[in-house]
Simulated assay, not measured.
Amino acid sequence: MEVNDISFENLPRAVAHLVSEIAEIKFLVERKEIPPIPQKRIPIDIVEACRIIGKAKPTVYTLVRKRLIPCYKNGKKIYFFEDELLEWITKGKKKTLQEIQSEAEVNFKKNCKKVVGEFNQNLQK
């Protein structure tokens, strides 16, 4: 409905139109979720990094020098982010004996099928 179409005769239609518009706006507002507030990534110093990963300062400095640990350097200071350190720790997970055994069985079965297939091909030649 156009704004210029409102007259005394069209007033009920105009009010109905406004009510439907308000209902639609209300639905959109109620449905919209509050956007998550991104957490600020605050850099931490080497002392805090040592506490998080459970290593001594010289060990952390060695890891930094060898570029094995995620870090940032600004001037003479080294900075870390806690989430990156925790991710770095989880990437170094050692496999359990069960995981190693199940992988070995899967690889053995694959190789066994491959060898049997090659053997059958050689027999057919």
Rank of each mutant, 00 (worst) to 15 (best):
T90K: 14
R65E: 15
H17D: 08
P12W: 05
R67W: 02
N74T: 08
E105P: 08
E9Y: 10
F80P: 09
V29C: 14
N4R: 08
V116Y: 03
K73N: 12
K73Y: 05
I53D: 02
M1P: 01
I78M: 05
F27H: 06
I46R: 05
I89W: 00
P58T: 01
E30C: 09
L28K: 04
E87N: 09
L97K: 06
A23K: 14
Q39V: 12
E33I: 12
V3H: 00
K77I: 15
E21H: 00
E84W: 02
K57N: 09
Q124Y: 04
N111H: 05
L28W: 04
V19R: 00
Q101T: 14
K32M: 15
N111Y: 08
P43L: 03
I52S: 08
N107C: 08
E33M: 12
G75P: 04
N74Q: 12
E84C: 08
F108K: 10
P70W: 07
N122V: 06
G92E: 04
N74V: 13
N122A: 13
E87T: 13
L11N: 03
L28P: 03
P35K: 02
G92L: 05
K57M: 11
K114F: 07
K40F: 10
C112T: 11
L86F: 09
F80T: 02
R51G: 05
R13S: 08
R41I: 14
K32D: 15
E118M: 13
C71F: 13
E84N: 02
L68N: 10
I44A: 07
L63I: 11
A104Q: 12
I37H: 08
I100L: 15
Q98C: 05
F80G: 02
E82S: 03
N111L: 09
F81G: 03
E103Q: 11
E33H: 02
G92Q: 11
N74H: 07
P70R: 06
V19K: 00
L85Y: 03
S102D: 11
R67S: 12
R41E: 15
K93Q: 08
K66W: 04
L85W: 06
V19Q: 03
E99H: 03
S102C: 06
E103G: 04
Q101C: 12
K125V: 14
E30V: 05
Y79C: 01
Y61C: 04
I44Y: 04
Q98A: 10
K94Y: 01
R13Q: 10
C50Y: 00
